[in-house]
Every structure is written in structure tokens, then in C-alpha cells.
Computed example of a mutant assay.
Amino acid sequence: MKATHHSSPLSEQIDLGPLADLPGFWEGTGFSLIARPQFSGSDNGFFLQLNLLRETIEFTSIGSPVVNRGSRQGDIAIGGVTYLHRVTDATTGAALHIEPGTWLNVPPTQEPASSGSIARLATIPHGNSICLVGSSEIAELPPTIPPANTVPFKMGGEAPPAGTKNPFPEYDLSCQTRFRTDPLPAGITQDLIDDPNSALREALKDQEPIQITRLITMSTSGGVANIPFIVSNANTATVESVFAIERVRTRWGATVLQLQYSQTALLSFGGLTFPHVTVGTLIKAF
């Protein structure tokens, strides 16, 4: 007897949507700013760690649609890519970060009502797991990149407006302190500390953007899960990120795919919330 396989129409297409250019191998550089808890000896209870980064991200397309079964509407098929993000210190070569995860392209739905969305799921070996949900957009050219806030603020309060002076000497390179990265890697300036997104604008300065697709995501309710140690010592409650897939013409006349990102995770301890900001610019190599 011949077996018959009844395939669902959902299995006939893989729709990556705004993620279509991600599969492949990307490499580049970046910058990280994090105020990490200092258990003893510090007047302000933290140490400001500043790192120049070398980064790679490898994206792999999921080979078939991921079917989510509906109870209040029909089934949906999700397209997606898995990824592995590796980060090392550009000065010392030391390992800093490794992050396996998944990007998803979620189609429009009736329950809940949505015109379509994207999602990023990731796990970090410090003991964090995140689910970020958002949307994509085609950016206007030339692109506008707003500043990233690095000024700590009262726990439960609002982040200060752009241009607010940082009250902590650890963030001021004109102040001597034992509680900041020393020696400071060449290339880290006061402007970079005040606004890490300035590195993204600098990278675009000698390029001609042709098309930019932004992937804008943030943690939803319950979107960050942490091990108990992190909850007690430096709770990470929210994460938001913007990844920009850019087709640009370089100053040498070549057209390349470039990935720029800016991510802010908010760490809360000692009555304050500290923005942990990471930015990067990577080129699609393969």
C-alpha cells in the first residue's frame, strides 16, 4: 500500500519578510558601555566597563515554516532565522558575549489583531532569556539616528532627556577614578560615552545609503527572564533594540549589505537604573 502525505498549504512557503537579507555571515566592530555592580570599595556602588568590540553574527534560515495552531483563528505559518552572535574584546581578544537566538517574521493575525510583527528570542549565559516583539520599517534617507541615553536615573523613574549631564565622575573622562576601565582603549572618547550611537553615525559618514530596513523590538510584559542572582543583584527588566539592515555604497564604489544595531538593557541596583548600551556595525561577508 502506498503511503500518502497530505501537506498543509502552510508548509509550501517560507516567508522571511523583512528578515530576508539576514541569512549569512556578518562581521564587524562595536562598542559596549555597562555600569556593573561593585560590591565593595566604590563610592557610587558601580564600576563603569567600556569595551571596543569585535563581533560576528551567523544567521541561518529555518528550513520550513513554523506552524502555530490557532484556537480563536486559523493556523499561521511563521518564517524565521536562527543566529549565533559572538563578541570579543577588540583590545585584548578576551571573550565578552555569546548569544544564540531566533528572529521570527509573524504574519498578520485576527486574534490578536495585528498587521504583522517581528520577534527576537535570545538567551545569554549570564542567566537571561529575552523575548522582544516589534515591527519593521523602511527608513527615510538619509537616515536619522537619535542619541542613546547613558545617564543613570532613579529606579522606577523616567530616563532623562537627551543632552542631560551625567552626574557621576565614572562617566567623565576628565575625572580620575579607579572605577572605570583602565587603561582606556584608544578610540573611546567622551562623545562615545555620552552617546554610543555616535559610532553608528560615524560609520555611515563616508557611505551612500541605498535602502535601510529597520527591525525595532522591545521586551513586552514578562519579556525578560533572569536567574535569581540577577534579580537580586542587577535586575534586568527591559531590553529594546533597533537593528538596521542597510544596503550601502562605500567610498570605494562597492555596494554591500551592512548591519547596524543599537541595544539598551536597563539594569537596576542600588536604587538606580543604569542603561547598558551596545552598538555595532557589521558587513555581510558570506
Rank of each mutant, 00 (worst) to 15 (best):
A77D: 02
E58C: 07
T91D: 14
F47I: 02
G93V: 07
D75S: 14
Y83I: 13
P37M: 04
V66M: 14
E99A: 08
G93P: 00
T123M: 15
T91E: 15
N68T: 11
N105L: 01
T102I: 15
P65H: 12
T88W: 09
A95H: 03
G116M: 04
N44K: 06
V81N: 07
L48Y: 02
V106S: 04
S61Y: 00
T109F: 05
P37H: 06
L53F: 15
Q49P: 00
T56R: 07
W103N: 06
R86H: 14
P112L: 09
T123R: 06
T109P: 01
Q73V: 13
A77N: 02
E99H: 10
A94L: 00
A35M: 12
S71W: 04
Q38R: 08
T82G: 14
F59H: 02
F47Q: 00
P107C: 11
G93K: 02
V87T: 14
F47W: 07
R36D: 07
V67W: 06
A94W: 00
I98G: 05
P65N: 03
E55C: 12
G79S: 10
T123G: 10
P37A: 02
I98C: 09
L48I: 02
V81F: 09
G63W: 03
I76G: 05
L104F: 15
H85E: 08
E55V: 07
L104T: 14
P37W: 01
R72P: 01
A90N: 07
Y83D: 14
G45V: 07
E58W: 04
S64L: 06
G63D: 12
I57A: 12
I124R: 02
F39N: 02
N68F: 15
S114Y: 10
H97K: 09
L104D: 13
F46Q: 03
Q73L: 04
Q49D: 15
S115W: 01
D89I: 08
G63H: 03
T92Y: 03
L104G: 11
I76K: 05
A90K: 04
T60G: 07
P125Q: 13
G41V: 10
E111V: 14
E111N: 14
S64K: 10
V66E: 14
L50Y: 04
G74K: 10
A90T: 06
L84W: 08
N44C: 02
V106R: 05
L84T: 12
T60M: 11
D43A: 09
I124C: 00
A95M: 00
L121Q: 15
R72S: 09
L48N: 01
A119S: 09
